Simulated scan of single mutants.
Amino acid sequence: MARLQLKNVHKRWGAYVGVDDFDLDIADQEFLVLLGPSGCGKSTTMRMIAGLEDVTEGEIWLGDRMVNKLEPKDRDISMVFQSYGLYPNLTVYENIRFPLRVRKVPKEQHHEMVMRAIEMVELKDFMDRRPAELSGGQRQRVALGRAIVRKPTVFLMDEPLSNLDAKLRVSTRAQIKNLQSKLKTTTVYVTHDQIEAMTLADRVVVMNKGRIQQVGTPTEIYDNPANTFVASFIGSPAMNLVEGRLADGVFTSEGIRVEGLRRDVTADVTLGFRAEDSVIAATGGQIAAPIYSIELLGEASMISWRLGGSLISVRAPKDFRAEIGETICASVPAEICHLFDTASGQRLA
């Protein structure tokens, strides 16, 4: 049983608050991703779980044990770092074997355990090489093999793909997802890359300034962001956000007018909608403004406008043709729109 609980966890250095009232229950075998910008507290949270940082306040439970005071080596947790952390003088085989030697696992068990890990990370043909003879992706797979060799209760992964190029990130991401499904080990994964979070996670924890902004499945967070921060952080491109006025069910702002919205609210609001939910219209759309930019993405074109200081994007067919500065329209139906309170940033219920 590898249920992991963080109960009102805080981390402070003097007056600086790194993590503020982090409260979360992580289920056995769950793949949980901590997502947020640099400095949001996600790596600090992971380091407290690992025992590399002391908890200022609150409790961390692994199964039926509170582990706040336990040394890292006593928590039965394996961690994969961004920097690989391999021993350059050891072969792949010996690097993966090293945790077994440190933990004094009986030597007669080593070979079977190491070979099992090597086969899982697909490095059998490279097990006699040293790290300098490997590619970045292969080195990261050695680090993964070293983490899984002793079958820990929990995996912690701190931005393990950030040193890899785009193509390697895709293939290694798929391998991590496949490994976790086979191993069925509770995993906490830290990243600032929302594509990694959306593709890997059972649940995503979006963090900002040390606090949890929203917890949910990738679909829940994408479809129903709790506030403008989550809306602006999730999605590629991020959700379009336009500040304006809502009255009598009509939202108005520079270059955009959307009817059929809530009639019970009269306030300054922020209207949100996804680029893929709106379409280019010949005439009569809710947006009418000069084109700011056109980007060909391969499968589609991205059309952007400048509206009220915001950059607004809408997907168009890949064969769409127009000139920058040409005024065109886009359809933004009321049913695809999200409303947020402009002052607080919170979603309007």
Rank of each mutant, 00 (worst) to 15 (best):
R169N: 11
L311M: 15
C337D: 07
E326T: 14
L164N: 06
N95S: 06
K69E: 14
D28M: 05
E59S: 15
R97P: 06
Q180S: 01
T187K: 10
R245G: 09
V114Q: 01
L168N: 03
I77C: 03
G41N: 11
D248K: 10
L70R: 13
A231P: 01
H110R: 04
L241A: 05
G216F: 06
C40K: 05
A2V: 06
A316W: 06
V215M: 06
A226Q: 01
Q175R: 13
A247R: 12
R116K: 15
N227H: 05
R203T: 09
I336D: 08
K7Y: 08
A226V: 02
T172F: 09
T342V: 00
R103D: 02
R263G: 08
A289R: 02
S236T: 15
R203F: 10
V121A: 06
I312E: 00
S135A: 03
L34S: 12
G308F: 08
T217N: 04
L24Y: 04
T199F: 12
D128Y: 09
D76G: 04
G272I: 07
T342R: 14
I49A: 11
E326M: 09
K124Y: 04
D125R: 03
K42G: 05
D125F: 00
S78V: 09
P333I: 14
L86Y: 06
K318Q: 15
V190P: 11
K177P: 00
L4R: 00
A27T: 00
R12C: 15
V114G: 02
L24M: 13
A282T: 13
Q194F: 00
D319T: 10
D76P: 03
A282V: 12
R315T: 10
Q180N: 02
Y222L: 03
A27H: 04
E108R: 01
R321P: 00
E53D: 07
F233E: 14
N89F: 13
N178P: 08
K104E: 07
A117S: 05
I96G: 11
L144Y: 11
T252D: 14
